[in-house]
Structures are given as structure tokens and as C-alpha cells.
Design a binder for these strands. Sequence first.
DNA 1: ACTGACCCATACGATTTCGGTATAGCAAAA
DNA 2: TTTTGCTATACCGAAATCGTATGGGTCAGT
Lengths: 295, 295
Amino acid sequence: MDLRRLRYFVAVAEERSVGRAAVRLRMAQPPLSVQIRKLESEVGTPLFRRGARGMEPTAAGRALLSRAREALALTAEGFEAARAVAAGRRGRLSVGYMFALAHAVLPKLIPELRRSLPKIDLEFIELSASTREARLLDHSVTVALCMPAIRHIEIEASNIGTQRLMLALPASSSLARATAVPVKKLQGRPLISLPWPAEDPATSVVASLLRRHQVSMPVANRVETVHSALSLVLAGEGMAIVPACAQLGCPTGVVFRPFVDADDAIDVAVCWRRDSLNPLVRNFLKCAEKVIRQV
Amino acid sequence: MDLRRLRYFVAVAEERSVGRAAVRLRMAQPPLSVQIRKLESEVGTPLFRRGARGMEPTAAGRALLSRAREALALTAEGFEAARAVAAGRRGRLSVGYMFALAHAVLPKLIPELRRSLPKIDLEFIELSASTREARLLDHSVTVALCMPAIRHIEIEASNIGTQRLMLALPASSSLARATAVPVKKLQGRPLISLPWPAEDPATSVVASLLRRHQVSMPVANRVETVHSALSLVLAGEGMAIVPACAQLGCPTGVVFRPFVDADDAIDVAVCWRRDSLNPLVRNFLKCAEKVIRQV
DNA sequence: ACTGACCCATACGATTTCGGTATAGCAAAA
DNA sequence: TTTTGCTATACCGAAATCGTATGGGTCAGT
């Protein structure tokens, strides 16, 4: 059961001649003739009818022929598939993303991925900040789109862009009349807080913004997602400080204002397991960087 | 692209260990290790992650694995299919039959064929006497069921049984009152003739029967099939001398009577091209002989 | 009928490839 | 650290493969 013999067999069957098949296979005729006979003795039945004008496959030969062709194609495809997977052109890529980035990023990111990596098996899952980390660690997502990057010993991250922080507030609020708001004006107003690691000043851009301006805002609510925060803003529970991209797909009745005296930004990052040697991660990063630049 | 390497690869992937796979393949571990590395260099990418506890297929390895399994199964099946075709257990068998045999033979023959040759691709085509020969010669049917055998230089035949000749006549005929009819009584009565080769006395059993009894019957009509003959008998056009099996499925109003003084019979034969080395023919013959004995 | 053309089969020597034994190298468990 | 359990490398003998030379059979044309 040798694949080379099958290749020889297919060539002879197609050329209906050992001599012509030998030319096609770039080899001499006698060894090819020997291989065909070996195949026949291995199968246990003649595969060709020999005539003075060439060889004609028997019914048994035709039965083998179609399967031999398939087997050859299948192994060639198997090799190609292995190479494609190794190069990150194929495989399964599961992306955990946060809702806040959905409207801003996905409509550009997904077409770009489909274009440059057409054969991959792509899956997007919306996950809250806390579950993105867990799903990354248990391998149920390959990469995560985060703001900011997940900080964890087993997780590696790459910043692919930034989003300016803006104040989200009800359209009816008196602060909404100005096109930009001084940070000081937030003093004492209730804040809808997102689950950023407030303990770590380096990552909590909101906390450091307020601290730098010596402003304190009582936390009115803690929510998991930017989307939830905006709902509570609309409900009049308070204000939120969120990335600019949250404007897209935001309910009417909530308006966004930049700060007069601050242009703090939050990092947009792609995160993945440090031990994930999946080359798709690298290709995904390239696409994501290209897309984020355009946002 | 060697099938042996793929077999080795599948074994290693399944055992997740070169050593255990070597045991399964009944070979030593080092050459197996070499073959795996050769496969990897041929594909151009690592297929396993080597650890101290064994080998684990990479994503690329898994992509190849499923296709390698299929390719192996396909070639094994190809070999088996070729053997089955050679042994006549598989293939396409197209049977041309005459309507007169349909009711008597087919209900027993077809189930027997399906039972003893379950994998063959079976086709039954009703053909008139003249077309059976043509379709046999142009390969569009494999075998033909005939009464009597086709005589042709390229066609071989095997008699598998006989059918007694009987007189088919209208129930209203005066001759129908007796349970058996003397041949002499047919003198001068119109005959519905079938296209048997009247020129050749050896094959034309009807002509020889009449000649032996020195009886002559004017030919009222010539028809292609026994079925047509019976229709004309019913229509009062004359009488027909037909094989006994035509009684089955015969229209009411036509009765069959044996001859008092003759028990001539016509051969039932299976015919096939002399150059058709199709082993299915042999197996078909066995089935047909078994079935005809029971009729 | 004979001859030439064509094609497949066989023989044999040279090369490549493969499998076995011995052993080194390496990482995790004891 | 030592032991254990893997895989990888080195080398040699055996087997398979390929190329050249040649035999043998069939068909077509003279």
C-alpha cells in the first residue's frame, strides 16, 4: 500500500500506456512496468488489459482508479492544510470582544479578516471584561479585544490603538450645553463606574484622570459593560467616563463631551495566552492594527 | 508523499508516543522517529510538540491527521473494491430480459441476486428479441435472458433450463374444451408467429414441431413479443405456440393447452459477449440456474 | 508471409532508502 | 541529585527502486 505506486498507477491508467506515463513521470519505462505489476500482485488481481496498442484498465482497475485519485488528492490537501495551519492561513480563531468596541471595530475588522485570511474558521463572542480573562485562560477563546489590556502572568498583550476618554451624560444635563467640559465641574457628581482595576493607578486611566485634577466623584453604580453604563446615564443615575468609540450605537438621550483640560486616552489591546503558539494570533494582530488605525 | 509515512504518522498521533506506536507497528523506535522527522521536513512544518511525556500533535498535525486517516481508508477501500470487482461481488450488471420471462423468473431471480451479490449495481431492462442482441453487442447490456439462445459469433450462451411449448388459444375456441390437444388439429389454422429464426431448423422449435407432425399453419401475424402474441390470440387472430411460462400474467380469455402427442421444449438461456470477461456474468449464471430450476 | 514499428516484460548492476542496534541527550518525577 | 522515561543521532546491513540493455509479442504495411 504505497502512495507512489498509486501515483504511477493513475498515470498509467490516464495515459493508457506505460511508456507515455513514464515520460510524464520523468522516469524510464521498465521500472514503471515493474511497479505496476507489483501493485497488481499486491491487490491480487489484474488492473490492466495489455494489448499491443497499450494498456486499458480493467473493471477492477477502474474501481481502484477513482479511489486512488481521491487518496492522492486527499494527502496533497492534507499537506497543504498542515502548511496553511502552520502559516496561520487556516484554523479556528475565536475572538472575545467587548460590546463597547463592537460598533466601532467589528464592521471594519471582520471584512478585513475575511479578506486576508479567507480560509479561517472565525468566531466572535461578546464577553464582559471579567469573563474575557477567564475564557482566554481556559483556551475557549484564542484572543480578546480589550480596553485596557488584561494584566496577567500568562497573558500577553499588544496595544493596537487608543481611545480618548469622554464624558457621557444625559442630554438634559446642564453640562451638556457646552461643547467641552472642564474636569473640575465633575466634582461631587455621581459616577457610573466600570470594573477597571481602580487599585492599580497605572491601568485605571479614569482614576488617574480624576486624581490629577483633584476631583472626586462618588460611585453611584458599578456595571460590567460600557453599554450598561450608558443605560444608567440615560436613566439619570449619573455620568460615565468612557472611550470615545462608545458613541457609536449609543442610545439617543445620552451625549458625549470631551474635556476642556484633559485628553487622557485608554489603550485598545489584543490579548492572548503567552503559551499560545497559534500563528493565527500574529496574523490577527496585523489585521487588527491595520483596522484600528482607521477608526 | 509516502503512504507508509502517513500510516506511521497516524499511529504516532494516536498513541501520542513514538515508542508505543513503534510497538503497534512492530518495529523499532529509532527508525520510526526518523520517518516522522522526514515527514515533518517534507511538509515543512512541525507536526508534533515533543515533550518529556511523549508527543502531542500540533494544530498543523491535527489538520493532516484527519486527511491522512481518510486517505489510508480510501486506499484500503480501493484495494478491496478492486478485489470485489474482480471476484464479481461488485460492479454494474445490466440484464436484458424478455417480457415472457418477467412474471415467471424476475420475482425469484431479483431477490436471489440481491441476496447473494448485495453490492452490485443491478439493472433490468425489458427488450424485444431483436434489440437484446444489438444491446448485447454494443455493450449496453451485460447479459440477456433469452428463449432460445442468441446465435452469434461474438455471443456465448448457456442454457439454464427449458420451457415446454404450449398452445395458447382463445377460451372460446372449440379446441379449448379438451385438456390436451393433438398437433394434427392445428392443421390449416392461423398462427401468430414470433420472430424465431424459421430458417434454422435446429433453433426454431416451433417450426420443427410442426414439420415433424406434417402440419402447416398459415402465418396470420408476426409479432415481436410473446405478450403481443397473446393479445392477438385474445383478439381472435389465431393461435400461438409459446413457452409454458407465458401463462403467468397472461390476459384472461386466453387458455393454454399442452399437446397430446408432443412435449417439445424451448431452451431458456443466458447470453453474454464472448469477450466480456466480467466475472459478474459467472455469478449471474449461478443465480439464474438456481432460480430457473425452481420455476 | 515477412518485416519493421511499437509496446510491454525481464535481467542485472548501481544507488537510494529503510529498518535494527547501540547510544546520546533531555526533561520531569522521585 | 538521581532515576526514569522519553526522543534523537550514528552506523551498518538489508531491501527496494531506478536506469540500461535486451527479449518477446502484436499489429500494420509491403
